[in-house]
Computed example of a mutant assay.
Amino acid sequence: MDALTTAVKSSSFRLRSPSLNSVRLRRIFDLFDTNHDELITVDELSRALILLGLDTNINQLDSIIKTFIQDGNTGLTFDDFQDLHKEIDDLFFRLDDNNDSCNDDGDSKVQDRKEETDLTEAFKVFDEDGDGYISAKELQTVLMKLGFAEGNEIKRVEMMISSVDRNHDGRVDFIEFKEMMRKVIVLIR
């Protein structure tokens, strides 16, 4: 199974909250764009997928990505990246949306549950040991896997944790994580 197939079969490929999805897409784009030239090349994407533990076939990846790269560019712009994501989303999740709309009578409680589920999935990415908390070490591990320079310095990671750690226990619980994410959503709206 190749990396693209693995990614799209994941239940966390798409968040139901459009604003969370937009922020996540931008963060992913910035992670993949390792030289910060606002383009993601096939090589950058391949390296990122390998870092995430996904097998990649560079030729398949190249043929898929090539159709989304604008003429004259050497890689995906953020708009191209969004188009690629939308195409994959439409291809693999269109039926899920139809089922959701049949079950969703417009009640905000249903939307709240979906948002809660998305936040829980996002939290689990960082809470590697499943103890209900994100420690500095867990955050450092994820940052290092994603190639963030901050992951190399535990002091910087600890500062990141303390910026959201409201009860000052040295780790981030789910409630603190939700508060942080909701502030991000408000900022981008």
Rank of each mutant, 00 (worst) to 15 (best):
D2I: 04
L4P: 02
T5E: 15
T6Y: 11
T6P: 00
T6W: 08
S11Y: 12
S12M: 10
F13W: 06
R14M: 06
P18N: 09
S19W: 03
L20V: 02
S22F: 08
S22H: 12
R26Y: 07
I28H: 09
F29A: 11
F29T: 11
F29D: 08
D30H: 13
L31D: 09
L31Y: 03
N35S: 05
H36M: 11
L39H: 15
L45H: 02
R47V: 06
A48W: 01
L54D: 07
T56L: 03
L61M: 06
L61G: 00
L61Q: 01
I64T: 14
K66V: 00
K66R: 13
K66L: 00
I69E: 00
G72N: 07
T74K: 13
G75M: 04
T77P: 02
F78V: 02
F78H: 05
D79Q: 13
D80T: 03
F81M: 05
F81K: 07
D83H: 14
L84V: 07
D89S: 15
D89L: 12
R94T: 15
R94M: 15
N99R: 14
D100C: 01
S101H: 10
C102D: 07
D107W: 05
D107S: 15
D112N: 14
D112R: 15
R113P: 00
R113E: 14
K114Y: 12
E116H: 14
L119Y: 02
T120K: 15
T120W: 14
A122N: 10
V125A: 07
F126E: 06
D127A: 05
E128H: 09
D129W: 05
D129Y: 05
G130C: 04
D131L: 04
G132Y: 04
G132P: 04
G132T: 06
I134P: 03
I134T: 08
S135L: 04
S135V: 03
S135C: 03
K137I: 13
F148V: 01
G151Q: 10
N152A: 14
N152R: 15
E153L: 04
E153C: 10
S162P: 01
V164D: 08
N167A: 04
D169A: 06
R171E: 07
V172L: 05
D173V: 03
D173P: 03
F177S: 06
K178W: 02
K178N: 06
E179P: 00
M181G: 01
R182N: 11
R182W: 02
V184W: 05
I185P: 01
L187H: 14
I188A: 12
